[in-house]
């Protein structure tokens, strides 16, 4: 049995429901799935890219298995795992993951990564509003503003980013906006990578589903917890 098959079996995916005679054993959920601690970890061989590639190929169960295997309990992998659970209507798994989504810090990052991945489509504007409320920095708001299909709004975002953080603006100009003769500014490459990696993975996964996940995690639109507020 290969890695994916083992991971899928461990999650109870693709193998059908447990037989009636097989009563849940100690440490197992009632539906036969093992607790998360029994799921293979990232060093078992899967990667986020593997999971997204599986989704691209329409193998959603396999993608979920990989996401579960590489989940470290927080961050992008957890977010996408939860979004996949939402998509599969796996309420049991989703409920277990929502606290980690609510606790993700800084709170604005995920909201703006999703908004940027949505490229201006709803509910991008409400995510931006939320991010602003929880202290998103000017550069992140500007970058997200530039990530829209509307040419005027896009240009305004580019201008905002130039005035907020010229080094990052030049790196984004080189990598995202494809401005002629633009080049990375070394001072900002790491920050670029940190934000863009999440945005691109969310876009590839399906930004609308991740936005739905955020709405589920913060149904009131959001009262951030005190710990998430900036001083």
């Amino acid at each position: 049995m290969g890695f994916f098959d083992k991971a899928k079996a461990a999650l109870g995916l693709g193998g059908g429901a447990p037989k009636a005679a097989e009563a849940p054993q100690r440490g197992q959920h009632k539906d036969g799935r093992p607790p998360l601690r029994d799921v293979p970890k990232a060093d078992s061989g899967g990667s986020l890219d593997d999971a997204l590639a599986a989704r691209d190929a329409g193998k959603h169960d396999e993608a979920r298995a990989i996401l579960a295997a590489i989940d470290r309990g927080k961050g992008l992998r957890t977010v996408l795992r939860a979004a996949a659970a939402l998509e599969a209507r796996d309420e049991a798994e989703l409920e277990g993951l929502l606290p980690a989504i609510r606790a993700s810090e800084p709170a604005w990052t995920l909201a703006l990564q999703v908004a940027a991945a949505l490229e201006g489509a709803p509910p991008a504007s409400s995510l931006v509003t939320y991010a602003r409320q929880v202290g998103a920095p000017a550069w992140a708001l500007a970058w997200t503003r530039s990530a829209t299909a509307d040419a005027d709004e896009r240009r305004r975002g580019m201008v905002d980013l130039l005035f907020a953080d010229p080094a990052l603006a030049r790196t984004v100009a080189a990598r995202d906006w494809k401005v002629d003769k633009a080049a990375d500014d070394r001072a900002s490459v790491e920050r670029y990578a940190g934000f863009a990696h999440g945005r691109d993975a969310i876009r590839r996964f399906g930004a609308a589903k991740v936005a739905e996940l955020l709405s589920r995690a913060r149904p009131d639109g959001s009262a951030p917890r005190a710990a998430e507020k900036k001083p």
Partner: peptide, 15 residues
């Protein structure tokens, strides 16, 4: 230029 702001999004050595 595609946009005026583009002229200031390149390194100064290019502009």
């Amino acid at each position: 230029a595609p946009r005026a702001v583009d002229l200031f999004l390149v390194p100064e050595s290019e502009a």
